[in-house]
Design a protein around this nucleic acid. Structure first.
Lengths: 182, 182
DNA sequence: AATGTGCTTCATTTTGAATTGAAATCATTG
DNA sequence: CAATGATTTCAATTCAAAATGAAGCACATT
């Protein structure tokens, strides 16, 4: 549960005694808390927790961070961070400083929640809703081969489902917009 | 993947040869398809797939079904069905025929999607959103113990998060209502 | 071309949530 | 109130999805 405490291999501020005692611990706690918060949010939308952890770490940080720094702070494998950063960048929720050019790439969070949440929605929710449409169609085409006494009731129920689906589909952009206010 | 075909212990229509050949197969396919559809929907909202499978089976059926019949048709354990039925009943998405009274209880689906989706939302989504509020508060109370140069930026970011959270919370009932049109 | 550094890939491992079903519980009936 | 049968519970198991990290790749530098 506790963050792996300040690693001995960490290069920065080898001994900066000007900081008040508890401050550094508070920074770690703050980072960890935001990681957890966004991790939960990612899970809520059915995306891998690590995406949220990574975004949260960047959201907490005043300066951009390298892939390695993120992996170290979170204690997660570099593979996960690599994947996560790519996806988050695709979402438009983070950005990389200095283009593919020289040296280590640094990442920072774009702070608009709309970008993150929109990405989560597009990644998991929208494809599922689309798939539902296909499923309803497939079932509808099955109705004529049902026994006669089943047909009417089955048709009615599918129509109900279909109406719900249309409605859900039509309000989704609306939801996305509303959730993107931050 | 294929449903375990008509069990030999099934009491009804022991040998009703008046049915066209393919009809029975179509009924199974129809049931299975609705199970899958609602199973996916349950997963989408982060609820156990089995809840959706059960609801789908009832949604497909013209007459109410017993726990055992459902378990048999779906090929899932009776424990899952027992749990699922209880939850769905709590959601108000299904109902039991003949109160706790005599013999085997029979269940049928209430067809309003609002009930099912509302249950899914209440079960998983609302608690998470509420938890986010607590997390934001905890982090806010941490700000004063951060190093001075971090405080301002951290406070700003938390405020942004907090605004998003308030908005999300306030539109949830609205979403629930919209999704409950069927 | 050779070396080095940072990044990605993906076969394996881990993890946690869902499922299972045997035993306990509860309800009904003779 | 014993017996029967339906239902629930929960410890053990299964399984799918996520995480891991070594090996390979790409690109920069000498």
């Amino acid at each position: 549960m506790t963050a792996k405490t300040l690693s001995p291999t960490l290069p920065e501020t080898p001994f900066d005694s000007s900081e008040p005692a508890g401050s550094q611990a508070a920074v770690l706690e703050f980072e960890e808390g935001l990681g957890a918060l966004f991790g939960d949010l990612a899970e809520l939308f059915g995306n891998p927790r690590s995406y949220g952890l990574i975004y949260g770490t960047l959201f907490a940080s005043r300066e951009p961070l390298s892939m390695e720094a993120i992996a170290e702070r979170l204690g997660v494998g570099i593979g996960s961070v690599s994947m996560g950063l790519r996806r988050l960048e695709e979402f438009g929720a983070i950005e990389r400083e200095r283009g593919t050019g020289r040296g280590t790439a640094l990442f920072f969070a774009k702070l608009e929640m709309r970008l993150l949440v929109g990405g989560f929605l597009r990644e998991r929710v929208l494809p599922r809703i689309a798939a539902t449409g296909t499923q309803v169609e497939a079932l509808t085409s099955l109705v004529p081969s049902l026994p006669p006494e089943e047909r009417k009731v089955s048709k009615q129920r599918l129509e109900r489902l279909s109406r719900w689906h249309s409605r859900a589909k039509s309000i989704l952009p609306f939801i996305e917009k509303l959730l993107g206010g931050g």
